[in-house]
Amino acid sequence: MGRTKLSSGSGGSGSGKSAAGLDTHSPAPTDANTTSSTTAVAEAKIKDLLKELYTLIHQVQDERARGEHNLSNISKTHERMQQEQRITPYYKNKLRGLYNTAMQDAEAEAELLRKALDKITEVKAIRENRRLDSDRPKPIMRRGVLMSMLQQNAVTLPLWVSKPGERPPPLCGAVSADNNYVAKPGDKVAARVQSLDGEENWILAEVVTFNTSTNKYEVDDIDAEEGKERHTLSKRRVVPLPIWKANPETDPEALFSKESLVLALYPQTTCFYRALIHEPPKRPQDDYSVLFEDTSYPSGYSPPLMVAQRYVIMCKEDKKK
């Protein structure tokens, strides 16, 4: 199997998730140059949003401080109950009350956190729109920059935390989109394209438009270095990437289970390959550990490699082989 898109050099770029996650590689510098009025409006909007975010974060902390008392109360009660070896109805009722209060506190806290995260998403959306609206061609990025940007994208993919009784929505982790779902312009997708030598590959791409009459997408190869290719592909050759990370602690059912067959982005490339899940993530920030199908290894599989939730999708050609 030829990894046609293996990055040649730029070892420094793959400096790992944590480093990439904290230093920002966002295309911010280009933004500063634009001076149109729309940008000014957007700037103002962003400023407002950031302010709201600030107050929300403080509210979150207030709520947490308020609930903390109750939580420590619970743990004290737990201790006492365990010491006494048996549970009297008095304790049961007390616990019930404490639990209910804690539930309400946690729900309120989660609500505030969601609002705060929504603000962040909004800010990001405004910046993303500006990038799309601008007529200037997209900056050609060096491979290393591109790779760390992809990593960053994966890390900052919003986390979905289900409320009690709620189910993860489509495009959250392993939950695939509805059949009639149409990816929006700018969305990242996996696209099955035919390269010049006739080989079919799943590449990472960005949606340009969707033509409803022909039912076809136009997508851009994310890796501009490959020669700015624009592909027109039918819908079934395009798989939208998840827009939410699934939280393993609350929504384990929205993750691919061990041993399931997936398409995963090979590290330091922009291509998806067939792989088996070796270990699903355990914490929200964790990545999948996957084994890529690779005939160059005696077992037929590569050693475990880490791939972010964002770049692991269901493998469609399950039955063909």
Binding site: G21, L22, T24, S26, A28, I46, L50, L53, Y54, I57, V60, R64, A102, M103, A106, E107, E109, A110, L113, R114, A116, L117, I120, V123, K124, Q152, V155, T156, P158, L159, V161, S162, K163, P164, N247, E249, T250, R283, P284, Q285
Partner: peptide
């Protein structure tokens, strides 16, 4: 809050949200 801090703030908030979700 600075624009460049957004990502790390997001990650922190998500940690808190995940914890709250788990607690729920």
């Amino acid at each position: 809050i600075g624009l460049e801090e957004l990502d790390s703030v997001q990650s922190d908030l998500e940690t808190l949200l995940a914890a709250a979700g788990k607690r729920l």
